[in-house]
């Protein structure tokens, strides 16, 4: 519906100029916004890099830290898609191409969970013999070798 409405509204259409014809030509308001987005992306990268430092590891639980990093990544991805990839100025076709692909990506990841994510639930004793052996950290060394076992 909205598609045909746009076609009528903005006809005649020159396909070579993509989305720009629908929104008043080539100008999205100057280059300033791109620099702002760039600064925001740098700030967000710095935010996720903070998790690298020891003081962060000591202060923030790992699960919170990981959720924070993914949130930052999603924020960065949104900024790139909306402004650098111009999706914010595009017509509704953007949903047709991005939403199904995004949903299928999520389904794909979910479908990997039972067989790959939970693979060790179905390991036999024989299979465990060849599985990676976790590194056991001996915290109390004063007890010596016999003390730990």
């Amino acid at each position: 519906m909205s598609q045909s409405h746009e076609n009528v509204e903005h006809a005649p259409h020159d396909p070579a100029h993509g989305h720009d014809d629908h929104h008043g030509g080539d100008d999205h308001g100057g280059n300033g916004k791109y620099w702002v987005v760039f600064v925001l992306l740098c700030l967000l990268t710095t935010c996720s890099f903070l998790t690298y430092f020891e003081w962060w590891e000591e202060a923030i639980p790992v699960s919170v830290s990981r959720a924070f990093m993914m949130a930052v990544s999603c924020g960065k991805a949104l900024l790139v898609m909306l402004f650098f990839m111009h999706l914010i100025w595009e017509a509704n076709w953007k949903w047709v191409l991005t939403v199904p692909a995004g949903m299928m990506s999520i389904f794909l990841m979910c479908m990997l969970i039972p067989d790959i994510g939970l693979r060790t639930n179905h390991y036999t004793n024989q299979r465990w013999l060849h599985a990676p052996q976790p590194v056991i950290e001996h915290v109390d060394s004063d007890h010596g070798p016999s003390g730990d076992h």
């Binding site: 191409l97 991005t98 199904p100 692909a101 995004g102 299928m104 990506s105 999520i106 794909l108 990841m109 990997l112 969970i113 790959i116 994510g117 939970l118 693979r119 060790t120 599985a131 990676p132 052996q133 976790p134 590194v135 056991i136």
Partner: peptide, 30 residues
């Protein structure tokens, strides 16, 4: 290009998803 990119999204989602489920499905310390 957008059709190609939508297939690329799924391609990398598969790879990243495999990494994530392998990473978090691995027993502690492995």
């Amino acid at each position: 290009l957008w059709l190609f990119l939508s297939t690329e999204i799924m391609f990398f989602a598969g790879l990243i998803g495999a990494y994530v489920v392998l990473r978090f499905g691995a027993p502690a310390g492995t």
